[in-house]
């Protein structure tokens, strides 16, 4: 039997090679960027960058962002996003601090703050899933109201002089590693397991992939979106409580930069896996990039304005990679 094959044209061969390299860069670009950043900063300051103290600093600095980003990941898995997460975290921290200053014990105060976060998430989920508002409008509105509530709770001031036991949640160390690092890692593992191994997680991915197909497949889309927003609200409250404990104080707007960075981290993470969807491992790579970059540039003494420009450029690069990835699919 004779087979006839058409040999590739001269023009096709290099194109194929470029495509392979391009695919490699697109698929591994974010992880490569992280490794490149680590190597770059290590090369610039080998005596400092990868020391135990500095790595611990990086982990400490990104631990709360990792928690907020984990919450953002859940919402983005179902195809939405939440603009109110940072405001919810501030409100939760403010509520906990306010209650403790009014004499409530630490544990009940934390529980109430968690319920507040849960409630905001529930409201977001209800507005998006059942009322039919776009996530942008709904969470923008709740962000505005929640920030106002935080101002009311704090009376526009910074609440401080919190109980030592509460502060130790954010400032204490176990085996010389700050407590928030353990909490961030623990929560991340739980969320990773939830998204990867449970029916709920798979349903959320299905909803994020195609709402109509999910509905026709018998998935309760409304409940799925409600749950994702609610969980995100609860988790962001954990982040806010830890931030208040970390700083030993709470104000209406502290941690507001976590909104932008959490979205950036999820977008960065979306380029890590083949499907180009929001995923927990990728988000943590994104968080690591943001943390390493901030720490490294600080160590090199780079102006904070330049740092902001670089952060924006990296987000653009990530979104570009993500869109290329989506087109390839």
């Amino acid at each position: 039997m004779t087979t006839t094959t058409t040999p590739p044209t001269a023009a096709e061969v290099p194109v194929q090679k470029r495509t392979s390299i391009g695919k490699f860069l697109v698929q591994g670009g974010t992880t490569i960027a992280l490794i490149a950043l680590v190597l770059f900063f290590f090369a610039m300051r080998p005596d400092v960058f990868l020391t135990f103290t500095n790595v611990r600093n990086i982990l400490f600095q990104v631990s709360i962002l990792a928690i907020i980003s984990g919450a953002q990941t859940l919402v983005m898995v179902v195809g939405d996003f939440d603009l109110s997460l940072a405001a919810t975290s501030s409100l939760a921290g403010s509520v906990a601090a306010s209650l403790m200053l009014d004499g409530t014990s630490t544990l009940p105060a934390i529980l109430v703050a968690l319920v507040v976060g849960l409630g905001v998430g529930l409201a977001n989920g209800f507005l998006v899933a059942y009322v039919g508002l776009s996530a942008f409008v709904a969470t923008l509105a709740t962000m505005t109201s929640v920030t106002g509530l935080a101002y009311l709770v704090t009376e526009g001031t910074t609440l401080f002089d919190l109980p030592a036991g509460f502060d130790s949640l954010g400032q204490g160390r176990v085996l010389n590693i700050p407590v928030p690092v353990y909490i961030a890692i623990g929560l991340s593992v739980v969320l990773w397991g939830l998204l990867r191994f449970t029916t709920t997680g798979r349903k959320w991915y299905a909803i994020g992939g195609n709402v109509e197909v999910s509905r026709l497949s018998g998935i309760n889309v409304q409940r799925g979106r409600l749950l994702a927003f609610t969980a995100a609200g609860l988790i962001s409250a954990v982040g806010g409580i830890l931030l208040a404990a970390r700083l030993g104080s709470a104000s209406a707007v502290q941690g507001s930069d976590n909104l932008l960075f959490s979205v950036a981290a999820v977008f960065l993470g979306m380029t890590v896996i083949r499907s180009g969807r929001a995923n927990l491992v990728g988000t943590m790579v994104g968080v690591a990039i943001i943390g390493v970059m901030s720490n490294g540039l600080n160590i090199l003494g780079v102006n904070s304005y330049v740092q902001q420009v670089v952060t924006g450029l990296i987000i653009i690069a990530a979104v570009t990679l993500s869109s290329v990835r989506t087109r390839e699919r």
């Binding site: 300051r45 400092v48 020391t51 103290t53 500095n54 600093n57 600095q61 931030l243 700083l247 104080s249 707007v253 502290q254 941690g255 507001s256 930069d257 901030s294 720490n295 600080n298 160590i299 904070s304």
Partner: peptide, 17 residues
């Protein structure tokens, strides 16, 4: 709004270096 956390990270990183 984020002055405290920015200064915290800035001085921490400087002292680390």
């Amino acid at each position: 709004a984020t002055g405290r956390t920015e200064a915290l990270a800035l001085v921490t990183d400087y002292l680390s270096a």
